[in-house]
Design a protein around this nucleic acid. Structure first.
Lengths: 395, 395
DNA sequence: ACTATTATCCTCGATCACCGAGCATAAAAG
DNA sequence: CTTTTATGCTCGGTGATCGAGGATAATAGT
């Protein structure tokens, strides 16, 4: 037996894609969607089964006809570790190739002390590596900060040292991906959330400041260095105001809890998220809060309208506090949105949809990004080569 | 002989792509770049030659070794007709599969009278059809106006009736593509102009108002209906001002000849392009003109900086009058650009490059868009089927 | 002029994914 | 128990690519 030369994985990538898109598809359904004959389906699934990539279990019978099988991740198949680092907590999960991460650890961290959190995350990852060995094919991290060339470059909201995350893995035997949380959440929404079916999706999310991403054909337009999607730093605001990022008039400053505080004459809040939720919750009984919410809603909606003019997306998905802001001042928001659109778009304005994956968007997106790598041609070649080595040493 | 069933064109698409990227590549060079063996190269080129897609001519000999051949468009190969409709003129050209259109007709038209111009263009196209028959595979039109679902929806600067262009072709035997001029010029620059080698290219052009497009991986992000890239209608300006497009605070209004006139206290110019050129030409000796140019340059540069923040492109290409505006007020422009960037981008700011294809960008881009269709799997299947019919009837 | 060197081209058998017809199989419906 | 329906499996055929071996056409050197 000789070492297998690199395969091209035609067909196989399609079937794996169907399994990712629709976890639990039946073999027959997948073949139909891909336009494969039954013979090809048999051959491809057999190959994927032999490679420990897919497992087949009898599918629940629907009507007449010979029962088919459900395609599922193989119990010894590849895994992706995903980590989400948020403002004051982090969590770690593991995903099989269906892209549905199941949480392993959740921890709070005193934000500011990045070293401590990074040590804990590194421990969790080492543990996963020990437990799963070569099954673990990639580590994909979602982080609330600007990412560039796979490194964190600005984490003002986390209060971290940008260099920290590089020490998250002990060695380079497993590829490490680092992505922005808004980018990854957008990816998840576009592929399997509020943006399914749309080719061009604009995802925007308000947390502390505003993040987002444009997704075209299922791939995020992350630009040259992966820092794409920093929509919060478009100068939709007052050019006289200098933003923390260094630029002027950033939209960022007009759409979150800090903006609400400013409009209410309050000092910058410690936790802008919590502050915003508190203010937005009392708009019904507090006219000043309602006025502040209106101003923020208008700033948000008119900016969104401008981006819709520019990008002409099929769908816009709103995450974080954006849906809250909208509902807290719905008439003002909707009016500002329509008012900001070009005439010819007003007849049939693109709907703005709240995200449908909730808090898990970034985690699911991180899994998707990791699986894009693992289930690529190169990733599968690696997997097959590893499997070959394991087989040889086992006999 | 039976009708050939649909082929998949593996390899062939790659070779055709090389010919488009580098007109006149040698066969050996193309094979090297695609990683093909000499056997595959022989077979693929033979097939393409038999299909009247490629021609091979002896290549000029460089050093030692057996001489190779140059790959060129076949003299009976597919053609794309390209039309560029501008403010007060139009031109029509024909391109072989190397994507270099050669002009056939150029005419001025009284802008406003769209019907007359459309009739003339239709005549020119009918003539091309008569001359080239089935070799003519697509008509690709670049137009200075908003395009949606392949139709012109807003042509305020042309003063045309948007419905006009649909009558440009007598029937539907040849596919008609209509694209925005800035989008197509950006496509051309990204593929073979100032943006070559960059994955994400932001192209912006100032004519009357501002247009542009984001190109990711060689494909323009034209959005849901093809109207993407209307960057001129991002609200970077004063929200109190209502734009002709219906939205508010559009960038469009701060960056062109109309803006210069406003700053100089002059009435809106008849021809904003000519007016702007005139004003920008006298900044050296006219302090008021210089001040106006500075304001426009700052509005343009700070907006570009915001878009660079948002998209993180590998390259920015500037077309139309944008390079003129920049040079007319270079210090102000550069300062505003740097000032609008996020801190971490300032160390190594993305260079802004003037377009390199000059006035031909839109025409070349239109050819590229047409060839994308003609040299796709489906397009080649059509071509092969047509050729088969012709062969049969010839004997 | 002749030979060596170099780069390329062509031929041919092997491989591999996919197709599709024909048959086998497993369930529900009658 | 038979029919109907949907699916899975087998197997020969097709077409694209690969790669080794030999042929070819130029330059460089003697």
């Amino acid at each position: 037996m000789t070492r297998p030369r690199d395969a091209r994985w035609p067909g196989a990538l399609g079937v794996l894609g169907e399994v990712r898109r629709t976890p639990g598809v039946t073999r027959a359904e997948a073949a139909r969607r891909l336009g494969l004959g039954s013979g090809s389906a048999t051959e491809i699934t057999a190959r994927l089964r032999a490679l420990d990539l897919l497992d087949e279990v009898p599918a629940p019978v629907i009507g007449r006809g010979r029962p088919t099988t459900s395609l599922r991740p193989h119990p010894r198949g590849p895994l992706v570790a995903v980590v989400e680092v948020r403002y004051e907590s982090w969590r770690c999960a593991v995903s099989e190739i269906d892209g549905r991460p199941s949480t392993v650890v959740t921890r709070r961290h005193g934000h500011g002390d990045g070293h401590q959190a990074v040590r804990e995350i590194a421990d969790a990852l080492r543990d996963l590596r020990r437990r799963h060995g070569r099954r673990l094919r990639a580590v994909s991290v979602s982080v609330a900060g600007a990412v560039r060339h796979g490194r964190l470059v600005q984490a003002t909201t986390l209060g971290w040292d940008p260099a920290d995350l590089s020490g998250i893995l002990p060695d380079e035997s497993v590829p490490l991906l680092i992505g922005n949380d808004a980018t990854l959440a957008g990816l998840a929404e576009a592929r399997g959330g509020a943006g399914v079916g749309a080719d061009t999706v604009l995802h925007l999310t308000v947390e502390v400041g505003l993040g987002g991403v444009l997704i075209v054909g299922g791939l995020p337009a992350t630009g040259a260095s992966g820092a794409g999607g920093e929509y919060g730093h478009l100068p939709f605001g007052d050019r006289a105001t200098r933003c923390l990022c260094g630029a002027r008039g950033c939209w960022d400053n007009d759409v979150d809890g800090r903006a609400l505080a400013r409009h209410l004459g309050a000092p910058p809040p410690e936790d802008p998220r919590a502050y915003a939720q508190e203010v937005l919750a009392r708009v019904d009984r507090d006219p000043r809060a309602a006025a502040a919410a209106r101003r923020v809603a208008e700033a948000l909606a008119s900016g969104i309208a401008g981006l819709v003019n520019a990008h002409d997306p099929d769908a816009v998905t709103l995450g974080g506090m954006a849906p809250l802001i909208r509902t807290a001042a719905e008439p003002a928001f909707d009016a500002a949105y329509l008012d900001g659109l070009m005439d010819f778009r007003r007849a049939d304005p693109i709907p703005l949809r709240a995200v449908s994956l909730g808090e898990d968007g970034a985690l699911i997106g991180a899994a998707a990004a990791g699986l894009d790598l693992v289930l690529s041609e190169a990733g599968l070649n690696d997997w097959a080569a590893d499997l070959f080595v394991t087989d040889r040493s086992a006999r």
